Amino acid sequence: MAELWATVGTAAGMFAGTNIDDIIILTVLFLSARAAGRPRTWHIWAGQYAGIAILVALSAVAALGLTVVPDQWVGLLGLVPFGLGVRSLIAAVRARGDEGDEPPPVATGLVSVAGVTLANGADNISVYTPVFRTIGAAATVITVVVFTAGVALWCLAAAWLGSHKKVVEIVERYGRWIVPVVFMLIGAVIVAESGVLGRLL
């Protein structure tokens, strides 16, 4: 029993440590859903689950010694949120002067939400892979169950933040600029921290 709780605690800590920045992204997505109606709430939930599931699957495959994407190029996934942010910023500039302050949606559906989750969690693979390689099948199943509960907790927390009156007021006023800039910054940080630009140059 002690070993079970130790596995649960380790998995919870690993999930929180590798996905703390997802709270920001999810909050922005829920705010966008409130203000613009896109993406829909179920798109956010399903997209987050799909993105985390893909990350876990890739980590499991890598743990078996099969590299799907070479580690040195994983950082290029940061271009996904960056590109979505640029597209949304261009839409905001074009809509400037129009009536209403609704921020243009950065992610509009399940696929784009999953893409953002996957891109933001690209570095998770380097953490999950060695863990899955060493903990065994039973502990891996427990870890996946904890991750599943963690995604639900993250979505609930972000939905609560996204409905907070002060946060909503700020986004209603400045959302058309804040939302795309946040996504561009997240994408830029992912690319920069991965060191992929240095390898390209």
Rank of each mutant, 00 (worst) to 15 (best):
W154V: 08
V171E: 06
A192P: 00
I54P: 01
D21S: 13
R96H: 15
N124W: 02
G17K: 12
V113Y: 06
H164I: 06
S112T: 14
S59G: 08
L58H: 11
A53P: 05
E169G: 01
P70C: 02
Q72D: 13
A50C: 08
Y49I: 05
I125K: 02
I52W: 03
I125L: 04
W177Y: 14
H164N: 09
P70W: 02
A46W: 11
V113K: 08
F30A: 12
E99L: 15
L31R: 11
V106W: 04
E169H: 07
G195H: 01
V181F: 05
G9A: 11
A62M: 11
R38Q: 15
L29Q: 14
L31K: 09
I24G: 08
V168Q: 11
D101A: 13
L29W: 12
V56L: 13
G47Y: 12
G195S: 01
S59H: 07
L58P: 09
L79D: 01
G85V: 04
W73Y: 15
V141S: 01
I54C: 10
R94H: 10
Q48K: 06
A16S: 07
I25N: 13
G83D: 10
V113C: 09
W5K: 11
L118E: 02
V86G: 08
V86S: 04
P103A: 03
L197Q: 00
G109S: 11
R40A: 15
D22P: 09
A57R: 11
R176W: 07
V68W: 12
G65I: 11
V141T: 04
T41P: 11
V189N: 07
H43N: 14
A114D: 07
G187T: 05
F82A: 12
G37I: 07
D71T: 06
Y128V: 01
R94T: 10
G78I: 01
V8S: 07
G187I: 05
P130W: 10
T143H: 01
V93E: 12
V167D: 02
L58R: 10
D71V: 10
F15W: 09
L55Y: 07
A62G: 15
A62D: 14
A122Y: 02
A91F: 08
H164V: 03
